[in-house]
Design a protein around this nucleic acid. Structure first.
Lengths: 136, 136
DNA sequence: CTGTATCCACTAAGATACTG
DNA sequence: CAGTATCTTAGTGGATACAG
């Protein structure tokens, strides 16, 4: 509403952020949106692309995305039934920041793995240098 | 490593993405990183900024971030003790895509809320147009 | 083919109390 | 101040079976 606080306070906007991230932050949503970035797909096509997703999670994820206006759901009354999912304008828009995150992930993954390794090493060393005794 | 598949397949990279998003995708991590973006903070300072986080979650989140090399933890052996948390190069780097997401969230929040509203409305209508009967 | 419904294991997360 | 430990509860997510 008021534009007086743009970079002021985290807690102010944290509700907005939490809310949005709660939706798009989980891995399935991101992966499904990623799968749809090139065009509409059918239910089982998404399922094949997003490896490891269960029917339940796919259905829930898609429903959530539809609810939030990120994808459209088109039913073709044929037999067997066919349902297409496609990103809306809003959904396509989301791909931009998501791609940024995606690229960050790919680019820095090795750095993270290295950091984890070193952290584990340090922890082990710390465990070997107790001040006096570290009973149980 | 091989560059033959860049935009080919989601399932290929989905492990990398899931892994990374699993770390940075949850709301607390995002909010904590956001809190630290302007400089180092102490434990309880973060706690105040990130409204509603429990001690447990803050500790876990910080430990995770430290583990992955996104923040540093500096202990000042004073009394009372003082511990500063600060973003590393990697962590500061993460702010870029995170800010993009942040801005997307702020910018499109209202659109999402509208979409949710309309979706709910449609559902209600659909419930009023049963084919024959919708017992129970 | 495109879902829904149910059950169940697992985990995440908050509240609370205590420690260095 | 900066955590740790423990308990309990709510939600997540997978497997399976079934329905339109």
């Amino acid at each position: 509403m008021s534009d007086t606080n743009k970079y002021v306070c985290v807690s102010e906007d944290s509700r907005a952020i939490s809310e949005t991230l709660g939706r798009i932050g989980d891995k399935w949503t991101v992966l499904v949106v990623g799968a749809l970035r090139h065009g509409p797909l059918r239910y089982n096509e998404i399922r094949r692309i997003v490896n490891g997703i269960s029917q339940r999670m796919l259905t829930l994820t898609l429903k959530g995305l539809e609810q939030d206006g990120l994808v459209t759901r088109t039913i073709f009354p044929t037999v067997p039934p066919r349902v297409d999912y496609e990103l809306t304008e809003l959904g396509r828009n989301l791909i931009v920041p998501l791609t940024a995150l995606y690229e960050w992930a790919v680019e820095h993954r090795s750095a993270i793995l290295v950091a984890r390794d070193e952290f584990a090493k340090k922890e082990r060393e710390a465990a070997l240098q107790p001040r006096f005794a570290t009973p149980k």
